[in-house]
């Protein structure tokens, strides 16, 4: 086997079963960069974009659903996040499954998945299992995918928060990897979730800020300020070529507060 281009799920799982070390190719926007730069030399590739089941967007999000499709909805904050991914060319090819496979702390779709407590469904020839987002994302560019396993879909909970907002800070609008990004989701009863990306080894939730603001039915200035402070305090950023830890910490709080205000 060099490359296999299955058209159905069983074909993809059979291919991965016979070559568990095979590299899975979806939109190629991450993998091809690594190949072009000589960082990866896969001998076996399973190209999954023809697998119809992986392109379904109906209650769950198939791994091969592109950013271009997610931009159109139905999930507001995920659509907002999708629109910030790369460029039209990247969004036409890149997929949410690729975001999970790459598991970058800067994955634009991941804060939404974290805020909704999404589960990731993994299939192999032997079994199907679901991991919650934080069981799946285990570290920077690390996930819990086992050899022979395929990211099948994102499974969202039945209860989707009606108010949800995503925001991202970077040096320009297009073609930018975030310095920091935030997703805030609020249920009608006030329960609030806040997930932050590019501010720790993996996407993270700031539970202290969530607990505080969830108890506020109509937060005033002091509650909003406290929410912002708790988000800044609760992130764990580093300084790198894209931004500093101090800036990321500050921006995470500011963006989280703004998004929360839009949710109220």
């Amino acid at each position: 086997m060099e490359i296999v281009r299955p058209t159905d799920l069983s074909g993809a799982l059979e291919a991965l079963d016979s070559a568990p070390d095979a590299t899975v190719l979806a939109g190629g926007t991450d993998l091809m960069v690594e190949i072009n730069f000589g960082h990866r030399h896969p001998e076996h590739i399973v190209a999954v974009r023809r697998v119809e089941e992986l392109t379904e967007l109906n209650g769950r999000i198939g791994a091969c659903v592109t950013w271009a499709r997610l931009e159109q909805g139905p999930y507001r904050a995920l659509a907002q996040a999708a629109r910030t991914v790369g460029s039209p060319q990247i969004r036409a090819a890149g997929t949410i499954g690729g975001n999970l496979g790459t598991a970058s702390p800067a994955g634009d779709g991941l804060p939404f998945l974290a805020a909704l407590d999404a589960e990731i469904e993994l299939h192999s020839a032997a079994r199907v299992r679901r991991l919650r987002w934080d069981e799946f994302l285990t570290g920077p560019k690390q996930n819990a995918l086992a050899p022979g396993e395929l990211i099948h879909s994102v499974v969202l909970p039945d209860e989707i928060p009606t108010r949800q907002e995503f925001g991202k800070v970077g040096v320009r609008n297009a073609m930018v990897i975030s310095a920091v990004m935030v997703c805030v989701a609020r249920f009608d009863d006030g329960r609030t979730r806040v997930a932050v990306g590019s501010a720790g080894p993996t996407t993270l939730r700031v539970r202290a800020a969530e607990e505080m603001i969830s108890a506020e039915s109509s937060p005033g200035e002091s509650a909003l300020a406290e929410f912002q402070r708790l988000v800044s305090e609760g992130v764990n950023p580093i300084t790198d070529h894209r931004s500093t830890a101090d800036y990321r910490r500050h921006a995470a709080g500011v963006v989280a507060r703004r998004l929360l205000e839009r949710c109220l």
Binding site: G28, R49, Q89
Partner: peptide, 25 residues
Amino acid sequence: QGECGSCTVLMDGAAVCACLVLAAD
């Protein structure tokens, strides 16, 4: 790496970067 768009082609009606398409795919 898909940053510059200089290799943009149409593939099945979508504009994509040819550098990010595996030829075999």
